[in-house]
Design a protein around this nucleic acid. Structure first.
Lengths: 193, 193, 193, 193
DNA sequence: GATGAATGAGCATTCATTCAT
DNA sequence: CATGAATGAATGCTCATTCAT
């Protein structure tokens, strides 16, 4: 019989929220447990230890992005359209899942993200590479290494999401409109004919 | 009487190195002290507490960037040239100061970088705003809010530096050339005439 | 209705092995269960709690010694012969049941073996007392309190078994022959005529 | 400047007492600290971890035995006399240091005392070997391997001390006199002329 | 100012035991 | 009877900070 994964979700949710608010620092297992409504020991039924939990959260989160972005892509549409849909979905996902965004951000710059680290769940990783590859093959974007493109675009989207989050107040006070940014990115990568 | 600042530098250097290798987690004050060659208690002569030390490091680091990028800018050159010099100097600085880059990265995504946080040292912050403002005034770049530009470009440079660091092996194995990236960025922001 | 005792044996065997390898410390109930091939909760069908289990193992083990030593004694033989048979059987049992020997050893020096402790199974205890008593009555050994004799001889045998186990390598490397020891013990207790 | 070793002694004393009363189990570091009158963290100034502390206690205790037995030996006396002095001093030491005796006992049968374990302090170990060697050379005791003799005698003394401690009540109730035991041991090892 | 031993709250993790299935 | 997920008190250990020297 399978262990029901309901509590695992609760624990992951609790940890994401704590990491969002207080960073990896301010995320003691006892708090994670309390906010998840389980006992401290219960976490260790689902994860070997804290590190393992963090990695599991990372995988979970990558799967979520895959679902909210990759699965909404329509490969039959022109690549330019697909690009802006991609961009919109990614940013919407981040905006609606601030804790996830924050986690990804902190994870990326933390020692968890070492050279050795290989996510178990490669769906998102593989998909984005393929996505940009198809854009090149279609002749829509410059013939660059798809890995550069992928990294460039992802980082840009991440950065934009981060900026939107961190400077929310300043931006609205100064009537700053960030909507041109994806067009600037597109201008940067689109094929020159 | 001034406190001699030599030990302060040693402490900051030691902390930067530890944070680079092991993250904020792996940076206990006792280690910072040991690697700096001072006693644990000595740190508290120069900093009120750990948080204060982290913020002080941030200021120190911002000043270093200012020195290596802003002070090398020649406002008399055409803005396009200034832009690429800016980009080069920033990336070179990051490449030659990995620990600094790592610190900035982790700091930015950490709860230290809260809404309330205001760096005491605003030299770098102010300068970059002015830099892009002058580019707009000169008519070299689009008439966007300089804050967006500044953030966009900074984040791009940070991302690129991060990518260069994290994917160093993969990049060289696959003969991936990242040099076109600043030109793409420039294409994105330059004025359309 | 009787609880089938098969699982009880499995649990005791598992616990003995763990205590042998890792001491009382390294013997968590969950491991005991796993190695016994039963669920953690099942142990509590057979034993009230861990302490109860330890005491039950002690009783079980005492019964095993009784079987392998007392039941092989022939009261009709001369006492000297019985003594050496006793000694041989005891040592052979220990050698062939290292986990048991280790358990007895650790139990004896542990707080489990408190003043209050009285084994439920007194077969072995009673029999050894009787054994030495008969040796005295027969005039074969000194007229000492049989309890002293019993303790003295038992401890000597235990010690010898322990030494054989712990110094196995050193003993064989140095060609050390331990066979004279029982004769020395016998010399010590035999009656002076 | 040296760390004063006074607190180290307090900690060792506290641990010995707790192990005596409650075994390795019932010896949590927090209790050790409390009974020693120091903070929990202080223990880790003197010992790397609990295991290290246990081994350090073992060394300390071996040194104490050396002092109370070896240093009181007079090599100029006849070996028989030296033997009984040795025996008396060892037993007196155990009787006056119950916690030490209990520690040695439990340590010996614990997994701490593994094959790899080598006490840092070999004074007592070396001295006893030499002691029995000189007895053989003098022709006072049988020409056996001194290691056997040493182990045999030590174990006998340990056993006797243990018996005296554990059966104190029973022994006095039954007017049991244990004083003949060393003579029995001596009879067992003395040279046959 | 500098030192580093001492502190003790806080953390990750373990494990005996329970109980719903 | 058997199961094993859940519990939460207890444990070993860390580390920011203090303060007597």
């Amino acid at each position: 019989m399978e262990i029901p994964q309901e509590k695992k979700k609760l624990i992951i949710g609790s940890a994401l929220e704590l990491i969002n608010c207080h960073g990896f620092h301010g995320c003691p297992m006892s708090q994670v447990a309390k906010n998840a409504g389980v006992a401290a020991g219960t976490i260790y039924t689902y994860f070997e230890n804290k590190e393992d939990m963090i990695y599991a959260i990372h995988d979970e989160v990558m799967d979520q992005i895959y679902e909210h972005v990759a699965l909404k892509d329509d490969p039959l549409r022109p690549f330019e359209e697909r690009f802006f849909t991609f961009w919109d979905n990614l940013l919407r996902f981040y905006e609606q899942n601030r804790a996830v965004q924050s986690f990804i951000d902190q994870f990326a710059s933390s020692p968890f993200n070492s050279d050795d680290f290989q996510s178990k769940s490669k769906k998102w990783f593989s998909w984005t590479s393929e996505f940009f590859k198809s854009g090149i093959e279609e002749g829509a974007i410059k013939d660059m290494n798809p890995v550069i493109l992928k990294v460039l675009v992802n980082e840009s989207a991440n950065s934009l999401a981060k900026v939107k989050k961190n400077y929310a107040n300043k931006l609205s006070k100064n009537h700053i409109d960030l909507s041109p940014i994806p067009y600037m990115i597109w201008d940067g990568i689109k094929a020159v004919n």
